[in-house]
């Protein structure tokens, strides 16, 4: 459905040049939800904007359907864009128009006869659950509702592809989930291909079929979400995955207040067998384990997350425990050694 081959984008300004995309090869299948994740500045937006030529490649090729977008005349490009919807982080609605008028805008632009607008607008507002807000102005809506309007608008001309650039990044977690549900529903109902940019692993985990991890203008990892989650090959991916489970460290004062014994941070990076390691620690090694805090998230059979545990006992118990956990593929950091005092 969408193919980028060897796409390079170099921005040149009078201060010099910057390569935001450095040889991107990517194929996105028809009907899938494809996620692109990476830290700020990785080039995600630049990449997704290539797919509707809001950004033109310095070199390389972009194909959507069977159209080579980078070879089109501007008139042909405008026509092709009607079949590629886009949803924005900051919604980009016209505040001078009502919700219904906003949704009708792409039809006006495409020259759809006016008498067909009303029915289509109602159908779309129904799909996104905003029928009763048709005559409201965007300023009267919540962020989640604004994004629903944005989605309805993007779907107005029955596109084959929906591009979402951080569509949920301006929303709270609950609203994010409801928007993600909506996108999933649209993907199933209408069978359109969704390309979704985010810096939150949660978004990927929740709705994506496949994922590409970006760093410094390159795709550093790509594959089925479960596959990439279970065998992350790069530190960046591991870090991104650990976001999914809360991993903030307990307060230093709290650690100092604990009675003796080692305090360990165990990071599950997906390759570890599963959570039974903790209970095995107790049964097989006979060490006591006191779980302090942490969160383990599961995707299919794989566990991700961080666990803070306290192991009462001396240095020997600590060493034994650390060795055992490491053998199980868990990353262990000693936050406090067995005989008290911080070591890291």
């Amino acid at each position: 459905m969408i193919t980028l081959s060897n796409v390079v984008k170099t921005f040149t300004s009078r201060f010099g040049s910057f390569t935001a995309l450095n040889g991107i090869d990517l194929t996105i299948q028809k009907g899938e939800i494809f996620g692109i994740i990476g830290y700020s500045g990785a080039g995600k937006s630049t990449l997704v904007r290539m797919i509707n030529m809001l950004e033109t490649p310095t070199s390389g090729e972009v194909t959507v359907g069977d159209t080579k977008l980078n070879q089109l005349s501007s008139r042909e490009l405008r026509r092709a864009r009607r079949k590629i919807g886009m949803v924005f982080q900051h919604f980009n609605l016209l505040w001078s128009r009502t919700v219904a008028e906003n949704v009708a805008l792409p039809m006006e632009i495409a020259g759809v006869p006016k008498r067909e607008h009303a029915a289509r607008v109602m159908e779309l507002l129904d799909l996104v659950g905003l029928s009763e807000k048709a005559d409201a102005y965007p300023a009267q809506l919540s962020g989640g509702q604004k994004q629903r309007v944005g989605i309805a608008r993007a779907l107005a001309n029955q596109p084959d592809v929906l591009l979402c650039d951080e569509a949920t990044s301006a929303l709270d977690p609950k609203t994010t989930d409801s928007i993600l549900e909506l996108l999933k529903e649209i993907n199933r109902k209408l069978g359109l291909t969704i390309v979704l940019i985010t810096h939150e692993m949660h978004v990927i985990e929740k709705i994506c079929d496949r994922v590409a991890v970006m760093e410094s203008g390159r795709i550093i990892e790509m594959g089925d979400v479960v596959e990439v989650f279970s065998h992350p090959k790069t530190t960046t991916t591991r870090e991104l995955i650990s976001q999914v489970a809360g991993s903030e460290q307990p307060e230093q004062e709290f650690l100092e207040g604990l009675n003796q014994g080692a305090v360990l941070r165990c990071t599950f990076l997906g390759e570890a067998a599963n959570q039974t390691v903790i209970s095995k620690l107790v049964t097989e090694l006979g060490v006591e384990v006191n779980i302090l805090q942490g969160q383990i998230k599961r995707l299919k059979d794989i566990a991700f997350g961080t666990l803070y545990i306290q192991v009462p006992g001396d240095v020997e118990v600590e060493a034994k425990t650390v060795a055992y956990l490491k053998k199980q593929g868990i990353k262990v950091d000693v936050l406090r050694g067995a005989e008290g005092g911080g070591r890291s």
Binding site: R78, G85, F88, L93, L94, P106, I109
Partner: peptide
């Protein structure tokens, strides 16, 4: 962002002036 949204819909410059810039 609004101008860009219109461009992503395939709007011509003239449409952007008439439907986006002036009304907004």
């Amino acid at each position: 962002g609004v101008i860009e949204a219109a461009q992503s819909m395939g709007a011509t410059n003239w449409q952007i002036i008439r439907k986006i810039l002036i009304p907004e």
